[in-house]
């Protein structure tokens, strides 16, 4: 079920990436980011209701949820946050400079001179 959600999120992400609006593009990026995080999270297996807290008394650790992917996803979320904000700022700046939201206007750097 969750893997289908991954697929849906990727589909939505890619579709949004392929739109011409800058804003939609960023939403696409965030969907992709979420999809990837979810993928990482679920690919290591899921354990419900047993978070990885241990103390001296804990013995049977193998029943707890795997904390590793959690840590990885946490890192990835934070990195994704940084990236997302930066791209937001970049697109905003671009809009400020050029006054367009259309990605198809981004042709100048590829044109022959």
């Amino acid at each position: 079920m969750l893997s289908i959600l991954v697929g849906v999120l990727y589909t939505a992400g890619v579709y949004m990436l392929l739109r011409r609006s800058i804003l939609k593009f960023i939403i696409g990026i965030i969907f992709m980011s979420n999809a990837t995080n979810l993928l990482v999270f679920i690919s290591a297996g899921l354990v419900a209701g047993k978070p990885a807290f241990v103390n001296g008394a804990t013995t049977n650790v193998s029943q707890l949820a795997d904390p590793m992917p959690q840590a990885l996803v946490l890192t990835a979320i934070v990195i994704g946050l940084g990236m997302a904000v930066f791209i937001l700022a970049l697109k905003y700046k671009y809009f400020e400079v050029t006054g367009t939201d259309d990605l198809d206007q981004l042709k100048q750097t590829d044109s022959q001179k």
């Binding site: 990436l17 993928l39 690919s43 992917p69 671009y94 981004l106």
Partner: peptide, 28 residues
């Protein structure tokens, strides 16, 4: 800015795929 957007967008996709690959690798 324009070059930056293209650079960033395509490389971000790369990053996501990298991360997804990592997740699968760890999962397996």
């Amino acid at each position: 800015l324009e070059g930056g957007i293209k650079y960033l967008a395509l490389n971000l996709i790369g990053s996501f795929l990298f991360l997804a690959g990592l997740g699968l690798l760890y999962g397996k």
